[in-house]
């Protein structure tokens, strides 16, 4: 019987990821650079006044998620590839249970996404003049989105790490998984921007939570096969 608990192992993996990231800053730099650059380009070329009033709710919510998704993709894709590149994957594979590895990496991606959202969303609102009436609704949509995106990113990152680590493959595999999710996130963000009532975001939120939950559960079952085969 294993002496360590799954929680303890997962937290050990998370702690290792955070320590490595703080020292190397590879993912943080990739996400930050991509997020800020895209945001500045969008703000400079489009800005708050280039979009007609009737189009603003649709375009601004969609643009926000385009920036967030692709910035996230640039950093989250490397979570397993870096283990293969550094030849630490085999060492980790022999020492930790697959579920602990998945949980630790998933939580790390969740923290990266939270950092990205915290950095980009307020800047985007300020630079694009995006007024969000329902801040609580937006926070809920962002939180649910982070949980779901982290699940899809983590499992796709694991798959591509076993396929020579192509980050192009990450984008190709991610798109069909996250397309419906992104549509719901955009709808939820648009609803939160237009109303202070939480009820306005509930239909989108239910979809995001359902899809995110399904992605997470499937990933938990799929990961041991991906990790060991």
């Amino acid at each position: 019987m294993r002496a360590s608990s799954l929680l303890s192992e997962s937290l050990a993996v998370l702690g290792k990821e955070l320590t490595s990231e703080v020292r190397s800053r590879v993912a943080l730099n990739a996400i930050g650079l991509f997020g800020i650059t895209t945001l500045v380009v969008v703000a400079y070329q489009i800005g708050p006044y280039q979009i007609q009033e009737k189009d603003r709710p649709y375009l601004l919510s969609a643009l926000l998620w385009v920036i967030l998704f692709f910035a996230a993709t640039s950093g989250l894709a490397r979570v397993f590839v870096k283990e293969e590149d550094a030849h630490t994957a085999k060492t980790l594979r022999l020492a930790a249970r697959p579920l602990a590895v998945f949980a630790g990496k998933y939580l790390f991606n969740l923290i990266l996404l939270a950092a990205l959202f915290t950095l980009i969303v307020p800047l985007y609102c300020a630079l694009m003049g995006y007024e969000v009436r329902g801040l609580a609704g937006l926070a809920l949509v962002l939180a649910a989105g982070a949980v779901a995106l982290s699940a899809s990113s983590t499992i796709v990152a694991a798959i591509i790490s076993r396929a020579s680590g192509s980050t192009t493959l990450f984008a190709i595999l991610s798109v069909p998984l996250v397309l419906p999710l992104l549509v719901m996130l955009i709808q939820g963000t648009r609803a939160a921007a237009g109303s202070v009532e939480l009820a306005a975001v509930l239909p989108a939120l239910q979809g995001i939570v359902s899809l995110g939950g399904a992605l997470l559960i499937v990933s938990v079952f799929l990961f041991p096969v991906v990790w060991h085969e």
Binding site: A12, T91, A95
Partner: peptide
């Protein structure tokens, strides 16, 4: 730190 990490993973 490496050995602490692997020790913790193995519950040792």
């Amino acid at each position: 730190e490496n050995l602490r990490f692997f020790g913790r993973l193995r519950g040792h």
